[in-house]
Design a protein around this nucleic acid. Structure first.
Lengths: 214, 214
DNA sequence: CGTAAATATATACAGCGTAAATAGGAGTTG
DNA sequence: CAACTCCTATTTACGCTGTATATATTTACG
């Protein structure tokens, strides 16, 4: 029984990130979060301004994990490295992309903007004009967020882990229909494969397309 | 004052889609929805089983708007047509991708799977094996969902419409910093440009990459 | 008409974020 | 030491959420 540590913003964010990891974004409530810290809900408000502040803090924290690519690398490798690092950091904490697209977080910190700046730089070096940079960056960002956010829907999912059979069941019962001829054939391939290596492959396709379309 | 029309599942879904359009996914509550129909909240439960059922119904409804591409088109055009139709339908009702990625809806209807099947077919025809089809489909789907979901975050946004200045303000005040050299230059380009034409361009880049990487 | 079935309402419960008032403990000052 | 202040934690409360349950009302039918 260690003496209870003092409540601090940092401890709150740590606990919030952990709770969001196990309970999901909806499961992250002020009352539950306080309980994991052995405290009442309103005590949190002495250290964070509100729940949005917590989510902003979490986002900021996770974005800090994103590595900056070696600036001497050629631009395709810089894009690959930055995007993959973003993907890995966000995938470790899917609550972050979720909080961002649902407007529950609105980070404006330098840390959250740094990876974007790096991608802007890489695409500029590729010879794209500003519109091209915006489009290329948007494509990469969509790929990152899309693949993470969609990986929890029934549409596509990870390798063998985690209820592959039951989750597919509601889809299977329609597949005898000849209305979806390709779907039934694809079912096994949908549940096989690794999400990250798929992402890497998709990123390569995108980069190849950028190179070829100048 | 027309005589009040009978409450029906269809009317409920219509009203829900409209309410979600104006108030967003979080603003769509059973009580508010009932109020727009001139009825008490619990009356809805005689026609839908719960809120998830409403969201499933909305998703299903919106997916019905997705056009099927001419099967005689070559595969790149079929992908383009299907993906663009998906993009347009979902962009008209962003609550749908939002409900899907937050697991508030779980459609298993044939209508919701049809566009996926069409894309599977197109990519198969391109000569990809099943793993390749899954990856290509995932990339297109990520692009669709990602661009729609991210268009409401501060990171990237539409043309001049809707608070471009105030929304950018929190970002601008950091840009004098030399930590984000490309960001400040990109700011005007970020708020210019049309979301849909960006999407089309990104889709073309992806298709070009697929063609070139076989 | 009377009765059964369908539909609408009223009430209630547990949970949410958080405003406002209160209580407790640590530190400093007289 | 006493008194006062400041910071932190708790308590209570308000309006919101989805929906279970019970009741009331309206409609359909023999």
């Amino acid at each position: 029984m260690a003496p209870r540590q003092p409540l601090t913003r940092r401890r709150i964010l740590d606990a919030a990130l952990a709770l969001a990891g196990t309970e999901g974004l909806d499961g992250l409530s002020m009352r539950k979060l306080a309980k994991t810290l052995g405290v009442e809900a309103m005590a949190l408000y002495n250290h964070v301004t509100n729940k949005t502040d917590i989510l902003d803090g979490i986002v900021d924290r996770v974005f800090t994990d994103i590595d900056r690519a070696d600036p001497d690398l050629p631009w395709p490798d810089r894009v690959r490295a930055t995007a993959l690092s973003m993907y890995r950091a966000l995938r470790r904490h899917p609550v972050v992309p979720l909080a961002l697209v649902t407007d529950r977080a609105n980070p404006t910190s330098l840390r959250a903007l740094q990876p974007m700046d790096d991608l802007f730089g890489a695409f500029s070096e590729a010879g794209l004009n500003d519109d091209g940079v915006r489009q290329a960056f948007g494509a990469v960002q969509s790929l990152i967020y899309g693949s993470i956010l969609l990986s929890t829907t029934g549409f596509i999912h990870d390798a063998g882990q985690a209820i592959p059979r039951e989750q597919l069941a509601p889809y299977s019962h329609r597949l005898d229909s000849d209305k979806l001829p390709h779907f039934s054939r694809m079912l096994p391939a949908l549940s096989s494969g690794d999400a990250e290596s798929d992402f890497v492959r998709q990123l390569d396709v995108l980069i190849a397309g950028l190179s070829v379309l100048k």
